[in-house]
Design a protein around this nucleic acid. Structure first.
Lengths: 196, 196
DNA sequence: ACCTGAACACCGTTCAAGT
DNA sequence: ACCTGAACACCGTTCAAGT
């Protein structure tokens, strides 16, 4: 009995889903195209129609990650009030929560070894994200809740603190209460840094 | 003519040196034990005497990295004056400079997929490093130049900011002047966060 | 257009055997 | 103790050929 026809039908999407499962379970290094093909029930050469190379698949995963992080951050902003401190708090916690749930994916998003053409898309995705944070800072400046200054420069310490905190907490083996405390401390730290 | 005797003599050190060259040139993902063996002029099985697995070699490289970063940070402290602001500035710039010169190595050091036994050593190395920074902060508190508080908590935002800044700058494709500006802004940010 | 089958040139790791 | 030779079970990628 032939469960699967000659044409899989939606191999591209299936590969991405399977890839994210093993990414989440075992990390990017353990990802094998041949294994994905096996799990999808196709021949070892089949994936190459949809992803010319393994890196192309990883790049596609990274793009998906940016899209989802974008949604999460935007949603967090909508739930926040107008005050800068509240917005910053929400953004930081949303980012942190995403990074805890998608550690390996985030690592992939920040990895600097993409194909040249995909790198273009990914840089654009990063800009979209920092653009969102930029607007929050500018808004804070307009409300007089953030000290004046070049926003492109002011955004760096915030982005760095968040990215670094998630990286630290994931590699260090901290407890959940330590993570919570560390996040709260870091947010307070950032608030002080932005205060007029 | 037999240039090399049956026993290589110092294969372990040779492998580490060669490994760091390709790490620097092409990244950790491109590192191949067989290739290293070829470059060292030994059989493919020879490395396994010194590094039971590829990960073991990567772990050894990471340990080397911690030792060197430790030296760099300690030296930076010795060149600094007594004022907290000066010490923080030196530490931050030393870390940044190390991270620019040893991007791939630093990534390895922070990577969270080590062998269980090596992980132990690496966690100890991290503690040694944060211990150094902890002492600087405590010193600042004694001098009244840093606000009071739990040092283990206070150190997190600093470590996060530095780690995150290097990660950002490496993945983003920033210019050297942007890096310099970003670093200066981040240091100022941290100084404000620590001010009493 | 999408997939298979078979091949190519690689891997990491293991293990008996050599020096 | 340290290394070789040969083997095993994998990889990613390519390409003619099938549906």
């Amino acid at each position: 009995m032939k469960i699967r026809p000659y044409h899989h039908g939606d191999l591209r999407a299936t590969l991405l889903t399977l890839a994210e499962d093993t990414l989440r379970g075992r990390g990017a290094a353990e990802l094998s195209l041949r294994e994905l093909a096996r799990e999808a029930g196709v021949s070892p050469a089949a994936p190459s129609r949809h992803f010319k190379t393994k890196q192309a698949l990883l790049d596609a995963l990274a793009m998906e990650g940016f899209d989802r992080l974008d949604e999460v951050m935007t949603a967090a902003l909508h739930e926040a009030g107008d005050a800068f401190t509240d917005r910053l708090d929400r953004l930081a916690r949303a980012y942190m929560s995403f990074s805890v749930d998608n550690a390996a994916l985030l690592e992939l998003m920040y990895s600097r070894k993409h194909d040249p053409d995909a790198a273009e898309e990914l840089v654009a995705a990063t800009r979209r994200l920092t653009g969102l944070v930029n607007r929050v800072i500018e808004d804070g400046q307009r409300r007089g809740e953030v000290r004046p200054g070049d926003v492109d420069l002011l955004v760096l310490p915030l982005a760095a603190a968040l990215q670094g905190l998630t990286a630290l907490l994931q590699s260090g083996g901290f407890s959940t209460t330590q993570i919570e405390q560390g996040l709260t401390e870091t947010i307070a730290f950032i608030q002080r840094g932005y205060a007029p």
